[in-house]
Design a protein around this nucleic acid. Structure first.
Lengths: 334, 334
DNA sequence: AATAGATGTGGGATCGTTCCCATACCATGG
DNA sequence: CCATGGTATGGGAACGATCCCACATCTATT
């Protein structure tokens, strides 16, 4: 059975106003009244109706999280899963519940859905079209973007420092003595893939590597299958071209490609060094364990929620663009 | 700016009742009134307040999903991630939004939280204590359990058919000619790990395998690290004991253990066949690709939501226990 | 003794919807 | 010509909380 505050009040012999004061904890209430109300609450396991509370408070204590992605998987994507884990944890810490939604159609509908539910704020994850952001902007709803790309200076967003990470990877591999570099890069419309490639390329150039010593293959998707397929297609070029490094713009591509190399008996790291980007859980578990550039997804999730909380409380936000540092994790594949 | 129905009505020159009828779509409204209301709605991008709707309808169209797990990761767990993906998709299809929560403390608080938010139904995932179920049972809130264990005949739950899967794995491996079996099994308090081991064991016995030809190591956790650690610890016993099969009760254990075997130059499947359970995404991506028993997580997620929807609509539910079939995926490791 | 301020209480408006009900108009048919 | 029923409309209650306000005590200060 579910009770309302009036029933609690009448059972405790007080008015609903007094009961409300006791339960919500603000306003005066005599010790006796307080005790009686709390006893009834405890006995009937009364749970205040958050829907009614939200109505008067004009605040739901819910935040909406939308992950935009055209294809499976979404939540089960190793990187976004980690991010959502972190968001959930951080949100709980600040007293928010999370309404989670995935959007494969990259439409405006999912945002509207959140708007209707009157979430206090919105976190938009991954690749999303400009029209979605423009749509959300029209409402005075706090929102921010994580791991997406935008040229809109108004949009508060969190990204990993992908150019820096790419450059660090270049410097590390060059330092190991490698001179011929092969790259499989994910879709360049994706901000992160683009920046990772550019960071890597420019890092190499700065070290004096000639453009002719860098070969880049572009992949339309950034998953295991594409990594494997492209590696297989370019296997002759890779081996014959004297390349000793395979760098990819994310771990999935690296892992997929590495499998092909291993199947064809290429010794890693002896014959070729392989390096990815992200540090998904399986990077360390692979044999050989994958050297990669770590993106601190956990940190990003926590930062995103903390930032959104500031926006909700109309506190000042220091900068629109928040970059998280990247770090190289050296393992067995290099 | 956000408007309410009264403002929409007055701008359209009708009463809020008429506006409500047009917007919610039930009740009479003249074509002219309808047109005017819809025009204002369109122009102001009016979004009906779902909170207020929920209050009168006593229905939020939200379902709660709680994943109980003592340790990281939760959403980023390859199996639960897939499950949540499926739940999200199915929920959306039926017009529900999903409030997602993780609970590491295995407490009653997360359920209370959902209760306060007045979700229409609750999906409880993974290992959860009896007291949580008992707590939820006290409210007349539709709920069901996925991949958990219960001896309570009232509790509607969905599980994979783990005994059958274990037995199928045994039959398959035996059919390959293997006669000495080594098993690393996850925590036996976990229903699925227990059933998988028992199914495997009994499957072997039925085929005439002696108990002395089966060696089982129990693992307190079922992740990559433990798989690797236990394989390393029992490496001598494995190699020296003439075992030609490593079967584990989930893929994570198998992948962790397989890495150790590969590092120590054991040829897979030549010298030892390795088989897991679950079919997480990385099982196929590993080198060698892991033979495993597939759990149809996608199906389970869809079934869970469909079943919960039936409960919410007070429709009859055919059986309390819903088992999904298991299927062997033969890949490179056997 | 009068006044002020702190403490305590309950009535009623409010939030934004839906829905019930009363009312009104119009066409149809006996 | 009047009853009947479909179409159309708006007023007001209801959902379950919070909170403002009026009012009543009680204590302390002048």
């Amino acid at each position: 059975m579910t009770y309302n505050i009036k029933e609690i009040a009448s059972l405790a012999g007080v008015s609903k106003s007094t009961a409300s004061r006791v339960i919500s904890g603000n306003g005066y209430a005599s010790p006796e009244a307080r005790a009686r109300v709390l006893e009834v609450v405890e006995q009937l396991q009364y749970k205040p109706n958050a829907v009614a509370r939200a109505m008067v408070a004009k605040r739901t204590n819910n935040i909406g999280v939308i992950v935009f992605r055209e294809r499976q998987p979404i939540v089960s994507h190793p990187l976004y899963g980690k991010l959502i884990d972190a968001i959930l944890e951080a949100a709980e810490g600040l007293g928010y519940s999370v309404l989670l939604k995935t959007d494969r159609e990259m439409s405006v509908r999912s945002a509207d859905h959140m708007l209707e539910r009157r979430v206090d704020g919105l976190i938009l994850i991954s690749r999303l079209r400009k029209n979605v952001v423009d749509h959300v902007k029209k409402y005075n709803l706090p929102y921010l973007m994580v791991n997406g790309s935008t040229d809109d200076p108004d949009v508060i967003h969190l990204v990993s420092n992908d150019e820096e990470g790419g450059a660090k990877a270049a410097a590390y591999l060059h330092g190991l003595g490698h001179r011929r570099f092969f790259v499989i890069a994910g879709p360049q419309e994706h901000r992160s893939h683009h920046h990772r490639l550019e960071g890597f390329r420019q890092g190499l150039m700065r070290l004096g590597v000639q453009a002719s010593d860098l070969s880049v293959v572009l992949s339309p998707e950034s998953n295991l299958e594409l990594g494997a397929r492209l590696m297989a297609e370019h296997f002759e070029a890779f081996i014959g071209g004297g390349y000793t490094v395979l760098f990819t713009t994310n771990d999935m591509l690296a892992l997929g490609a590495m499998k092909v190399l291993l199947q064809r008996s290429v010794r890693i790291p002896g014959q070729a060094a392989v390096m990815g980007f992200d540090d998904i859980d399986f990077a360390a578990a692979y044999s050989p364990a994958l050297t990669t550039v770590k993106v601190d997804t956990n940190r990003m999730g926590h930062d995103a929620v903390a930032l959104l909380d500031r926006l909700i409380h109309q506190e000042e936000v220091l900068s629109k663009k928040n970059e998280s540092a990247s770090e190289i994790l050296i393992r067995e594949s290099t």
